[in-house]
Design a protein around this nucleic acid. Structure first.
Lengths: 129, 129
DNA sequence: TTAAAAACCGATTGACGGTCGGTTTTTAAG
DNA sequence: CTTAAAAACCGACCGTCAATCGGTTTTTAA
């Protein structure tokens, strides 16, 4: 999934704001970087066509909101990255994790251990089916 | 780091082949996708300028090789992803892990636990400095 | 019915990767 | 030292895609 700079920023805005129409998004970005309402509209439209936003018309205008959670999305991008390079997903992610591990604090390390435990249980029960 | 399709493939080729000159890379890709030697040369040059390849002239031609290990590179891309979306690196990666965890087998889960242990030790010793 | 608001469309621009022919530089043989 | 071949290098062009925005059509609500 290839995203331009403005698309990324709009997506982030919607992750934070939950729901907004074009005018509202425009109001936010107009202050920070200028541009026209049309630009925001077509960016929203592009994100919608890419499946990253949902929208439905409430009264006069489309109400947009993210179609996917930020974490899920980043997870997908990471997966895409590993496939893209024909890397074994598990090993690549493991290696990537090694390089990023200094970013984790004790709390996060614990949560990660919990995830491992859960996954280990799932692997076991899958095997028994 | 934004890479085109051919750039990705050439980079991968060099991760596997270790070292090669333009002619050799060309010989490989010519069979699979056609193209000219010039195209391969400029692709190598672009990757070199992006800092992803090293090269030095041995006799007649440049010998190229990857300037960064595949795993390290993917790690960097993952880090870049999380920063790009202003996401807390630890939490995002954690979330990404959750979404990708089904890809891990028991062996990889164990290695991951080992990494956690190592990192925990490092965190402790950092704290004591 | 109609004016305003929003969606929609089409054109343009700027990056950038891919492509390759032709020119310059380098190398090594004679 | 000369020179032919090999490789690097340069410049041009194309295709794709995000960004941009004006103008037209559609929708909404007064």
């Amino acid at each position: 999934m290839q995203l331009g700079e403005l698309e990324k920023q709009v997506l982030q805005y919607l992750w934070e704001t939950e729901v907004a129409d074009a005018k509202q998004v425009y109001a936010y970005f107009e202050k920070r970087r200028g541009g026209s309402l049309s630009t925001i509209q077509s960016t929203l439209d592009r994100l919608f066509k890419k499946g990253l936003l949902k929208r439905d018309k409430q009264g006069h205008a489309f109400q947009y909101q993210a179609a996917i959670e930020r974490d899920t999305f980043i997870g997908q991008l990471i997966k895409g990255l590993t496939s893209e390079f024909n890397a074994d997903k598990g090993n690549s992610l493991l290696a990537a994790f090694t390089s990023v591990s200094p970013e984790f604090n004790e709390d996060q390390l614990e949560r990660l251990e919990q995830i491992i435990e859960d996954q280990r249980d799932k692997n076991k029960s899958d095997g028994s089916v």
